[in-house]
């Protein structure tokens, strides 16, 4: 497995765990107050911290096993993989944002709009990493 495929795995796991921290808190706040929680800076800071810590630690560990791979420049196949994965993932983000706007039209809730757009961007990024992993393992 190449370093960049490992990197995609690390970022997927970090994003999933960060998303779990964020959305489990939002959902538990909804159960408590029966209202969509307002976006809160501490929660966003926690989300960013979880992702940064896991990403940095994961990459340090991965790079320690294959230091040469970690320093290698991106080659032509990897560029194609990133371009294709990013292209398809952009549709996931776009569709999510469009749906979020639709939900807003009916709910008129800015808080809900924030969370759904946030989730869409997160899903788009996850799709990007999952597609990278898929393309690394199949033909491109």
């Amino acid at each position: 497995m190449s370093f960049r495929e490992k990197s995609a795995w690390i970022m997927s796991i970090a994003l999933l765990l960060g998303g779990m921290v964020y959305f489990s808190t939002v959902v538990s706040m909804w159960f408590e107050s029966r209202q969509v929680a307002s976006p809160a800076i501490p929660l966003l800071v926690a989300y960013v911290l979880v992702i940064c810590v896991l990403a940095v630690l994961g990459h340090i560990i991965a790079a320690s096993f294959t230091p040469k791979d970690a320093h290698a420049a991106v080659d032509e196949r990897e560029r194609q993989i990133f371009n294709r994965a990013g292209h398809t993932a952009s549709f996931v983000s776009g569709a999510g944002v469009a749906m979020s706007l639709g939900v807003y039209l009916f709910s008129q809730s800015g808080d809900l709009l924030f969370h759904t757009v946030f989730a869409s961007l997160m899903l788009g990024q996850l799709a990007d990493y999952f597609l990278q992993i898929r393309f690394y393992r199949t033909s491109i």
Binding site: S2, E5, D69, A72, D75, E76, R77, E78, Y136, T138, S139, I140
Partner: peptide
């Protein structure tokens, strides 16, 4: 040729067609 070992493996397994330059 300026690619990673993983790309050479993909070429050998016919999972990737290299650029004309490569």
């Amino acid at each position: 040729i300026g690619v990673t070992r993983q790309t050479v493996i993909a070429i050998e397994q016919n999972r990737y067609s290299p650029s004309l330059e490569s």
